[in-house]
Design a protein around this nucleic acid. Structure first.
Lengths: 198, 198, 198, 198
DNA sequence: ATATAATCGAGACGGTACGTCAGGTCTTGCT
DNA sequence: AGCAAGACCTGACGTACCGTCTCGATTATAT
């Protein structure tokens, strides 16, 4: 994602570009964001963007990366109180909070749709951004599995998809309101399954 | 979605535009499709598009609508052999087939991302395109519920999300390969839930 | 200038079009006047204009024709007090008045430049609009010639051009201010010639 | 007539645009010339035209300017054989030749009518294009005046208008054929005046 | 008085050009 | 060498009009 020799690269320009990008994402519709706009907002020549990023999506992606690296101190962990249902409920509620936060909603939709169209970006996303988070989710489930709260033969990847897939889908496609009621039922249903339990 | 008086509208132009749109969606990346391109491909003046549709997304949407209306004869129904697991497995495999069909993949990604950015479009999608299909899904589950195969207190809407949400999410975000193996495990896990039975 | 059978033609529409045209000429730059604009201002279908006039210039021309026919009662005559210099001075001052009248300046510039580009229109202009006026000018000079105030062998057509040519030229090309001082000197110089007398 | 900083301007583009403009003026009716047409003929982006010229008329004007600057070597001078009538006759015949030359007629009509509608352009024309020529005309007359061939109190500006005004007027408004016979009579009448001598 | 046919208003249509915005490349000095 | 600045060619935007073409709904004779 950064072709030439990084040595002489000016760090201040890089940060200015990524910050300007993220700021713009919050302010205007994604489709209306332009390289020119980013450059002028960042006080940077267009060439400086084209030199270091192959596409607008890549800039957006790096803007998120910068943000997440800034936030992070050490590996991500999901809460583990021993009560899986309670922990999941809490995490999903927090996720909903973030997804509907006006500061992040538009930028995240932008990232999501860029990924949908660009498989290289999708791979980078899977590795750099989603990877650690997904591992944390898997880890929390593994812990529950060890505690006998989940089926032994459960495919943890499928399980992660089963819980978070519906949430992201509903959010991205506006399938309905993201209420706590809904997330709570989602967790319960995923844990118990559709079939009647005795 | 169609502002002026529809009376004098020329049906041949309308069809030409929608057909051209869908054809283009298969050939070139969505972002590179232009109103100008659609108009010239359809042999139509640009104004004729701007007169009847408010945005590129709306045209794309109507192109899908035309397609689905053409295909449909009566209400959509999911197979009902009495064996829910088998039926769902089959339907999901077919869905995967469609989602990865080169003719439809790009157009459907385009539609999905347009919906993600335009809530009006999302509403129209929910009502006109996804609505009947979702009702069919719910109906199949209701039938199973009546047969005692699903929990009595199951929220069918959540159930639908639980099965199809992960699928669409994995497809759209390229979360991994869409193999029959994965869909089969998805169905099984959704039906049984994450918790151990017995 | 009016092709089909004039019998069934609606006179009210014709007048509305010509009036609207002349009004528009006063209000907006000639280049910005459109058939659509005239039609909508006149409350008339575009086809009604296209049916009866071959070009925008022709409509403008007819608008002038209508005006001049309205004004006229009998043939045009220039004043003839017996004092040619005085009469010409007066007439030229009046002409300047008209050429710089804000109600007429723009429309007349429009007509003048249409004529410059369309020789058919120029012929119609020469015959219907300029013709009678030019004949009146010639007649006034002929009268002076009979009175021995002009050279016997004078070509009256050249004489008319010599007096009014410079005026129109200065007006149309904005060669300088059209003051009474200038017109008076023009008349005097034209009458006496450039060469020294005696 | 040239807004931004001229420093970075590409001279090749400028010349291509002006040349293309002049060429087009010879080929097609002025009203049918478009910025788009000029740009494509010149192999230039439209923006490059809009960047440096405010209007189509300004481009046309500069095209003429380029031509006249190319032709010129030093200040313009009218022939001075000592015989004013002969010299003027010759010059007017040459002017007629030029005005009716198929290469220049349409372009010059275009320039003339642009000037008629745009007073800024008219001012630029008066200063840059017509100015030197008019001074040459005045100078020739001044020389004749010194030689006692013209009245001492003659206003040379009026005199210039008296000779060339009728010519341009007849040409632009197609007032009649531009024969040598007519121009010769024009010169004679202007010199002698309308009043009888002796 | 009624049929009948041209004219009318309205405005959709396939086009062309408008003047603007942005994309991505290239060039020019400055640091 | 990287950079800010910005000119350049390209292509698309959304709008305004072009001149043609239906549509009913008036008229104004010609039956």
């Amino acid at each position: 994602m950064t072709p030439p020799n990084t040595a002489r690269r000016r760090e201040t320009s890089r940060r200015a570009i990524l910050t300007a990008t993220f700021d713009l994402l919050q302010e205007v519709e994604y489709a209306k964001i332009s390289i020119e706009g980013i450059a002028s907002r960042a006080g940077v020549g267009k060439q400086t963007i084209y030199r270091w990023w192959p596409s607008k999506g890549a800039v957006v992606f790096d803007a998120f990366l910068m943000l997440s690296e800034g936030a992070e101190g050490g590996p991500v962990r999901l809460p583990d109180s021993g009560d899986l249902a309670a922990d999941l409920t809490m995490v999903l509620r927090a996720t909903v909070e973030e997804l509907t936060d006006p500061r992040y909603e538009q930028p995240m939709r932008a990232l999501a749709t860029e990924i949908a169209h660009d498989s290289e970006l999708a791979a980078a996303y899977a590795e750099r951004l989603d990877g650690p988070l997904r591992e944390a989710k898997r880890e929390r489930l593994r812990s529950a599995q060890r505690a006998g709260q989940l089926a032994d033969d459960l495919d943890l990847d499928v399980a992660v998809d089963l819980i978070w897939g519906p949430l992201f889908q509903r959010w991205l496609h506006r399938g309905g309101p993201l209420t706590t009621d809904w997330t709570d039922r989602l967790v319960a249903t995923a844990l118990d399954g559709l079939r009647p339990r005795r």
